[in-house]
Design a binder for these strands. Structure first.
Length: 122
DNA sequence: CCCGTGACGGGGG
DNA sequence: CCCCCCGCCACGG
């Protein structure tokens, strides 16, 4: 629990099934409110991580509740598929905007986050 | 060292 | 709904 990326992954690892959050919200949770873009970079770097599959990257979307990953390699479709499998609904069949986004937002208590970052639970 | 590039976000038009 | 601009910051050329 030290580097920026490790903090991002540790927090993201705890997003509950069926819930979602945004890059910006994670940035704020780890005390780097201006680093939303870097959170996205951290998610992209998961592929090269040993236990990267333990992090539910698909539950992280942009602040408007819209999938913002590029779809040139069907990444967006994959994220949409994974979310729908958890009961997350979208505005339309071919839409990347989650319907009822604010209602399924993950809102961890500050205490919980503090604990995660301090203890570095694994 | 400068510069382009984003899985971002907020503000305006 | 769309588009643009700007601040942000790590990475790669």
């Amino acid at each position: 629990m030290r580097t920026f990326n490790e903090k991002v992954w540790e927090v993201a690892r705890h997003i509950p099934y069926g819930k979602v959050t945004s890059y910006g919200r994670i940035a704020k949770l780890i005390g780097a409110p201006q680093a939303a873009r870097e959170v996205g970079w951290a998610m992209a770097a998961l592929g090269n991580q040993p236990h990267g599959d333990a992090v539910p990257w698909h539950r992280v979307v942009n602040g408007e509740g819209r999938i913002s990953i590029s779809n040139h390699d069907h990444g967006a479709d994959e994220q949409r598929r994974l979310l729908m499998a958890e009961g997350v609904l979208f505005d339309g069949d071919n839409d990347l905007k989650i319907s009822g986004f604010t209602a399924i937002l993950w809102s961890p208590s500050p205490v919980e986050i503090q604990h995660l970052l301090d203890e570095g639970a694994e």
